[in-house]
């Protein structure tokens, strides 16, 4: 008899756990949905018809912490709720092509132009740029430290066969890297060339473990550098500059797109206040800005 009641108790406990978890979950959602409305009342922000805005962006904006710093301002001001999907530029644009997202914040100029030419995107605006740098182990086996010629530096890495890590995921960074190889007329391949197919943060971590060279955007580098031991090798080459653009997905292709939200986001992003915010980001933490605003 006692055994039986024990079993019943256990079963009850399990059911209880399930019920509590379900309630907690729906409760959370409700709260999250209610929050912006409350603020709208107090701050009389405009009420968006469709508050869900899906933003596909590169991993660098997420990994650098920029989005975490500026998006809450946008959400507070406009009542939109931004869902960030951080992937490579390639994947971001293919999401845009499929109409799965509303707005893109990417850095892959040639591909962006193609995207617009194919009719998938509209309203492209320059937002900011950052720059890449080549980082590597302090011992610098390839002997490239201090160079300002990115193409020559990569060529040297390939000649000395030093470990190099490539994003290898068709992201903006990856395309930039390929462009630099091309500028040095070198076709990278061999055991020293590791195409890892990962985001910037993971590639950084791997490069650090493998004591290899890699091309990295300044934002991700500054944001993570205290955790790792790799040092800057090459910077300042104009070839290493990296412009970010914001593009709305064409509402004529996908009527369900939240074009209104996308427009609001673009306008907000290129507004003077936001541009100043971007220019400030990172200064207090890293002593230098991660992104340089350049909206016209």
């Amino acid at each position: 008899m006692k055994r039986l009641s024990n079993h019943k108790l256990l079963a009850l406990l399990l059911v209880l756990m399930l019920v509590v978890s379900v309630f907690a979950f729906t409760g959370c959602e409700k709260q999250a949905a209610e929050e912006p409305q409350q603020e709208q009342i107090t701050e009389t922000a405009p009420v968006p018809e469709n508050p869900q805005l899906k933003l596909a962006t590169t991993t660098s904006t997420q990994d650098s912490g920029l989005l975490d710093a500026i998006l809450p301002v946008f959400e507070e001001k406009t009542g939109y709720e931004v869902e960030v999907i951080a992937v490579g530029s390639g994947a971001a644009m293919s999401m845009g092509e499929a109409g799965d997202v509303d707005v893109l914040l990417v850095h892959s100029r040639a591909a962006e132009d193609q995207f617009i030419a194919d009719g998938f995107g509209v309203d492209r605006q320059d937002v900011m740029y950052n720059d890449f740098l080549i980082i590597g182990p302090a011992e610098d086996p390839a002997g490239i430290k201090g160079s300002t010629d990115a193409a020559a530096a990569l060529l040297k890495i390939s000649e000395t066969g030093c470990t190099f890590l490539s994003r290898g995921d068709e992201s903006g960074t990856h395309k930039k890297e390929l462009a630099i190889w091309k500028a040095g007329t070198c076709e990278p391949s061999g055991a020293w060339y590791n195409s890892v197919g990962k985001g910037m943060g993971d590639t950084y971590r791997m490069a650090d473990e493998m004591k290899g060279y890699t091309l990295i955007d300044r934002a991700t580098y500054l944001f993570n550098k205290d955790n790792y031991s790799l040092e800057p090798m090459v910077e300042g080459d104009p070839l290493l500059f990296n412009p970010y653009g914001v593009i709305a997905v064409n509402p004529e292709k996908y009527p369900n797109i939240n074009y209104e939200g996308a427009t609001a986001f673009i306008e907000w992003l290129i507004s003077a206040d936001t541009q100043a915010l971007i220019g400030e980001y990172g200064k207090d933490q890293f002593g230098q800005a991660l992104f340089i605003p350049d909206a016209k």
Binding site: V87, G88, G90, D169, E170, N194, S195, V196, G197, K198
Partner: peptide, 21 residues
């Protein structure tokens, strides 16, 4: 680490291809 030619397997390939769109 999903390194091409060294440690890339089927599942990590799927993740990568998906990420690349």
């Amino acid at each position: 680490g999903n390194i091409q030619g060294k440690t890339r397997v089927l599942t990590t390939s799927i993740v990568l291809e998906t990420r690349m769109g």
